[in-house]
Simulated scan of single mutants.
Amino acid sequence: MIAKKILNDTFLIRNAKVEDAIQMEYVQSRCYPTLHESEILDRNHFANHIKVFPEGQIVVEKDGIIVASASSFRCDFPEHDSTFLEETDNLWITNVQIPNGDWMYGIDMGVLPEYRGLGLSKEMYKARNEVCAALGLKGQIIAGMTIGYGKVKDQMTIEEYCKKVMNNEIIDPTITPQRSAGFRWIRPLYNYINDPESGFGSILMYKPVDENYYL
């Protein structure tokens, strides 16, 4: 389980508790303003995640207030493409959690806007890798939203955008930092998530515990 001070002891990163669910819901509501309401996690979803896979739910707090959170479940490597709702059991994770799965699938990570740029996402990714190592997992999987597409959607298709991001011709506010945090490109997921600003797409990526491991 995770519980430690980070960033010059300014923040506490730890595993989430059921009583954190209301504050986690608030973080979620502030982080995804263009995401369809059917794909927004609420307090009941967070509480269930903590029940199903407590090791994989993480929060960051400052002075007792939660300013960031991350949710995940344990699974086998996804062989086939699916939508966000299909992948997450309609946000509940109950029926997709595999107790002996080899991977941690990160389905959500949010930082309150006023605390962005401090490195909190990177700290949560590091904490997830520590959990993966402790549980003997191969690493993390994420589907990073191509959130920067909205600014150029009149200039190119989402397919063209993804190719440019992959080739580092375009900096995406989500994908580029995730790759800097050690995530490796697998493939784009088109029509994955109901968010027009992301072109309804995401990028499937992985971050292994052992850096010498490759898919």
Score class of each variant (00 low, 15 high):
151 K>W: 05
110 G>W: 08
40 I>A: 02
213 Y>F: 10
110 G>S: 09
64 G>C: 02
45 H>E: 00
27 V>I: 10
132 C>I: 11
106 G>H: 05
97 Q>Y: 15
68 A>T: 00
86 E>W: 05
68 A>H: 05
201 G>T: 02
6 I>V: 15
155 Q>I: 07
107 I>D: 04
112 L>D: 09
82 S>E: 12
49 H>Q: 11
118 L>Q: 07
36 H>S: 11
74 R>H: 05
93 I>D: 12
86 E>D: 12
58 I>T: 13
135 L>K: 15
124 M>S: 03
208 P>N: 08
101 G>F: 01
121 S>D: 15
7 L>C: 00
79 E>V: 11
95 N>M: 09
66 I>K: 11
49 H>F: 14
4 K>E: 11
75 C>D: 11
117 G>W: 04
122 K>Q: 10
209 V>A: 12
174 T>I: 13
7 L>I: 04
66 I>V: 15
96 V>A: 08
116 R>T: 03
48 N>A: 07
77 F>N: 07
38 S>H: 10
114 E>K: 02
205 M>N: 11
154 D>E: 09
209 V>R: 08
186 I>F: 03
158 I>E: 15
160 E>L: 06
94 T>W: 07
124 M>H: 07
207 K>S: 13
214 Y>S: 02
184 R>W: 00
196 P>F: 04
148 G>S: 06
69 S>C: 14
136 G>R: 13
191 N>S: 15
120 L>R: 07
4 K>C: 06
91 L>H: 01
79 E>G: 12
63 D>K: 11
34 T>I: 05
82 S>G: 00
212 N>H: 03
70 A>L: 13
25 E>L: 05
117 G>Y: 02
105 Y>R: 07
40 I>R: 07
115 Y>P: 04
176 T>W: 04
35 L>E: 07
155 Q>N: 10
203 I>F: 03
27 V>L: 00
161 Y>I: 10
193 I>Q: 00
51 K>F: 08
54 P>I: 03
83 T>L: 01
156 M>Q: 15
32 Y>E: 05
45 H>R: 02
160 E>W: 11
177 P>Y: 03
